[in-house]
């Protein structure tokens, strides 16, 4: 079983990101489950959502406490939330940032990939400058970094799950898939 935790802020599309991921894995014949950390979501507040992927039936129906990988939609969360709590050693952290994460310390225990999903989202008219909607781009980057799921399945899942601007969302995912940076270990 692969367990993925997605960190974002209300309005960025973290919950939809976890659903797109699940749907993409489903298209590659996996069993899947996706759900938000259940709270009263507010715009801008930290939110968490989860995705489980397995070759067999998924029976665990509870939150994920020891994820294999992380998706981080807002890099500021790294300074305000203990995002790596429970994360398994060697797991991927895919972060939306234009900063060089080489000195962040995350690379010591984990594999880190970055993508400038804000710029990509804005380029394709997704959200506004103050609140870009980065969920489709970051899922594309997750596929590119981890190679756990194919970009074709991701694009199909976006077409299924995103209600508006499907084309632009797919382009954003594809660009993120190609432009992500795998951060080298120090």
């Amino acid at each position: 079983m692969i367990e993925i935790r997605t960190h974002g802020r209300g309005g960025q599309g973290a919950v939809i990101a976890s659903e797109i991921l699940a749907d993409a894995f489903f298209r590659e014949k996996k069993f899947v489950q996706a759900f938000p950390a259940f709270g009263v979501e507010r715009r801008g507040a930290p939110v968490v959502s989860f995705t489980r992927v397995s070759d067999g039936e998924i029976r665990e129906r509870c939150e994920i406490y020891e994820p294999d990988h992380l998706v981080v939609l807002d890099p500021v969360l790294i300074e305000t939330v203990n995002i790596t709590v429970g994360l398994k050693r060697g797991g991927w952290i895919v972060i939306n940032t234009n900063r060089d994460m080489c000195g962040s310390g995350l690379c010591d225990a984990y594999r880190v990939a970055t993508v400038d999903a804000n710029s990509i989202a804005l380029k394709y008219g997704l959200g506004s400058r103050s609140a870009p909607i980065v969920n489709t781009a970051i899922v594309g980057a997750f596929a590119g970094a981890t190679k756990l799921v194919g970009i074709k399945a991701v694009l199909e899942a976006i077409a299924e799950f995103v209600p508006v601007r499907k084309e632009n969302n797919m382009k954003a995912a594809e660009e993120a898939y190609k432009s992500l940076i795998v951060v080298p270990k120090r």
């Binding site: 749907d23 489903f26 069993f31 489950q33 759900f35 938000p36 259940f38 998924i58 129906r61 509870c62």
Partner: peptide, 12 residues
């Protein structure tokens, strides 16, 4: 059905 653990959980 259980709140959230089913109501808001996506699966096949």
């Amino acid at each position: 059905l259980d709140a959230f653990f089913l109501s808001h959980t996506f699966e096949i």
